[in-house]
């Protein structure tokens, strides 16, 4: 029993790492007022960029950098549509997911089944994710820039009144979120399962979106949520004979519906940024 708890915790942390990384990024984007549903696509692009670069140069750290860049560029593209052009954020995110998955599947074809000589260790990235969670919590809660970011999501007019460009803040948050999603992708293709395969993200991006909500947009609660979701996934294989795997795998999504409903009833943790999902129009009264 003790062994079950311990091994489950370790595996939960491993599986939880990509969703924690991407989830932290999404928390930042959403805290600035922008929902980016393109996490899955950015993660796939990150995974491919990481693998392609690491495979051809033999330098996994360079692959990591490439993944961060790929995620950031994809997010910037999204920001052009969703922030500058004020397109519907949700639909723009869906478009980014389709595009990211499609592009990665297409351009990744030559890398399918290719071996990777130098990989990254799961443990070091797991530690990095935990440190990042702590650091991001600090930034968000205790620094000036954290305050600005949160204000952009709660009440963008005040940020504007402070003389700070709301668009710039949101761009920065969204691009940062993309970089984190890219990092999550790199974890998958360089450490978790060192390889490239179409569909390598297998819905993890959506779990990251769920995680942001489930953790009520709080970086430290995100750690707990990632562990919880990771444990569910691991147990779906571990307890295959005892529990229906599909039930365990569906739980993160069901929990999000539940959490959203409870917080709407005022009985659960709330904390959705006020201006979440609303494009900002300068000088316009709402």
């Amino acid at each position: 029993m003790e062994d079950l708890v311990w091994t489950t915790l370790i595996r939960a942390l491993a599986f939880g790492t990509p969703i924690l990384l991407a989830g932290l990024g999404e928390i930042f984007a959403e805290r600035s007022g922008v929902v980016n549903l393109g996490v899955e696509g950015m993660m796939a692009l990150g995974a491919l960029a990481a693998f392609a670069v690491a495979q051809s140069t033999g330098l996994p750290l360079l692959g990591l950098a490439a993944a961060v860049l790929a995620g950031a560029v994809a997010a910037a593209l999204f920001a052009v549509a969703a922030v500058s052009l004020r397109a519907n954020q949700y639909v723009a995110g869906l478009a980014l997911t389709m595009l990211g998955l499609g592009l990665a599947g297409l351009l990744g074809k030559p890398f399918e089944g290719a071996p990777l000589a130098h990989t990254l260790s799961e443990t070091s990235l797991m530690a990095l994710a935990l440190l990042l969670a702590l650091a991001l919590w600090f930034v968000l809660r205790h620094t000036y820039w954290g305050l600005v970011l949160r204000s952009a999501g709660e009440n963008p007019e005040t940020v504007d009144a402070m003389g700070i460009n709301v668009f710039s803040v949101r761009y920065a948050a969204v691009v940062f979120g993309g970089a984190m999603a890219g990092l999550a992708g790199a974890f998958l293709s360089l450490a978790y399962r060192p390889s490239w395969a179409d569909g390598i993200t297998s819905g993890l991006g959506w779990i990251a979106v769920a995680l942001a909500i489930f953790a009520s947009w709080h970086p430290l609660r995100a750690v707990v949520a990632a562990l919880f979701f990771g444990a569910l996934y691991h147990l779906s294989y571990r307890l295959q004979a005892q529990v229906t795997p599909e039930l365990l795998k569906a739980m993160p999504y069901l929990f999000v519906v539940l959490v959203l409903s409870l917080s709407a009833l005022g009985r659960g943790p709330s904390g959705a940024p006020e201006a979440l999902g609303t494009p900002y129009e300068r000088g316009e009264r709402r």
């Binding site: 696509g41 593209l77 052009v80 549509a81 052009l85 397109a87 519907n88 639909v91 723009a92 869906l94 478009a95 980014l96 997911t97 389709m98 595009l99 990211g100 998955l101 499609g102 592009l103 990665a104 599947g105 297409l106 074809k109 179409d198």
Partner: peptide, 19 residues
């Protein structure tokens, strides 16, 4: 070419459309 081509089309069309 992989069937993912359709996702590329879908994503691009939607993206340009809403923008």
């Amino acid at each position: 070419m992989p069937f993912r081509v359709t996702d590329v089309f879908n994503g691009l069309i939607l993206f340009f459309l809403i923008s």
